[in-house]
Design a protein around this nucleic acid. Sequence first.
DNA 1: CCACAGTAAATCGTTCGCGATATAATCGCA
DNA 2: TGCGATTATATCGCGAACGATTTACTGTGG
Lengths: 153, 153
Amino acid sequence: MKAMAKAEIPSPEELMKIDNFLCFAIYSANHAFTRVYKPLLDDLDLTYPQYLVMVVLWEKDDQTVGSLGDKLFLESSTLTPMLKRLEAMGYISRVRDRADERQVRVRLTETGRALKEKAGTVPCGIIEATGMEPAQIGRLKEEIAALRASLLR
Amino acid sequence: MKAMAKAEIPSPEELMKIDNFLCFAIYSANHAFTRVYKPLLDDLDLTYPQYLVMVVLWEKDDQTVGSLGDKLFLESSTLTPMLKRLEAMGYISRVRDRADERQVRVRLTETGRALKEKAGTVPCGIIEATGMEPAQIGRLKEEIAALRASLLR
DNA sequence: CCACAGTAAATCGTTCGCGATATAATCGCA
DNA sequence: TGCGATTATATCGCGAACGATTTACTGTGG
């Protein structure tokens, strides 16, 4: 056996190996998720980031761009073009708020709302691909969310 | 208290909430890492993905595009433009292999090699930003690497 | 009432990331 | 030998993602 799993301080050499990078594990796992999602989302004509936007809207309809950005940790410079594509596909509408014309209200269309049913099987497919138990998934998710909070602090 | 943390099967409703998505935790943590890296890498004139390429080369110089892609889980369509930028910056050279002209050998320049010293403090800055202990980081990294393996299976 | 600070989206330019495809070199085998 | 299959990289088009900036609206103090 090669590592005694003592609480040793990692040497600078070890610190510089890509396979010891937590960030790289996350970076590459993120790409892996994207690839797993691809075939599942092709049916819905959604990309993975677009799907995340739809999930947020299915959870709560009629949100501003800013509110979506807060939940997804994305900037308006990312969201605006994405939302325009979703609008062009007929899944959402984008309308200036009458009361505050600075804001744009993003709403599901009937088609967009209906898509939720069709997407119902997607999470199962993903869970299966992880090869993990729901409880384990939940635990890992919490740890990573906590990490994210630290990083954004 | 709202959740008894029993090993219940999550309801379809719960499954469709973005904050319960493991993939979203990873997606957003990845963006968070990118933002933390930005100021640390600005000194080196590297983007975060470029930095990862350099790390792999510092670990082992003189690799083919394919070998880099295997280690970073990236396609040539992603790497080729990135490597051209690193070459234009003077950090690497790209030369066709004499023995097998299909391959391109990527090598560090003197400048590129020297950059490793300057980058020495980066991992510490990142570890600090995670707010985690090295052992904890290692454990989490392993879990996510295992997840990645499952997803790519 | 109005200049001005603040806020919300949109726009622009750059870099990543991929799939599909193209190009070019090598390999296998008849 | 030579030709079809395979392999390695490059190219292209598209969709994220961001920082910096712009545009347009709101809200406030004088």
